[in-house]
Design a protein around this nucleic acid. Structure first.
Length: 118
DNA sequence: GGCATGACATTGC
DNA sequence: AGCAATGCCATGC
């Protein structure tokens, strides 16, 4: 049993809302590592709800202490690349933590993906 | 209930 | 590598 199992259990029991559960998981990603939207869903016991993970993060209030920039697409690309605000910000925050981003704007999941399940 | 929407994923070209 | 077509599933109208 670990923190993640507790969160998943709380979510399943209804003690924790979907959004709160997502924030909780994301908040546990170590600096310098990343996770895919799908991965967050898997950790919560809902492998088909990658889109809803994005939904939850989109509703994240600015100023909240949640490292949303450590969540990328499954192939390592930055989701908000088209956004003039958050796109560059996400890339900057990641590189500041030591995560290298290819010229194509993608992160090597092979090297930086957080794997708490192993 | 039907239909559109969305910080996604996978597959096929 | 890039793009389009599909599949997913909670939400809101």
């Amino acid at each position: 049993m670990n923190d993640i199992d507790d969160i998943r259990a709380a979510l399943a029991a209804g003690d924790l809302g979907w959004q709160a559960a997502v924030f909780d998981i994301v908040g546990r990603i170590p600096p310098g590592l990343v996770l895919g939207y799908k991965d967050v869903g898997v950790l919560l016991g809902h492998p088909r709800r990658a889109r809803h993970v994005g939904f939850a993060l989109a509703a994240l209030p600015p100023g909240r202490d949640v490292p949303w920039w450590r969540v990328l697409r499954s192939d390592g690309s930055v989701a908000m690349q088209g956004d003039p605000e958050r796109g560059p910000e996400q890339a900057a925050r990641l590189t500041a933590e030591g995560v290298t981003i290819s010229p194509a704007g993608r992160v090597s999941m092979r090297r930086f993906r957080w794997e708490p399940w192993r």
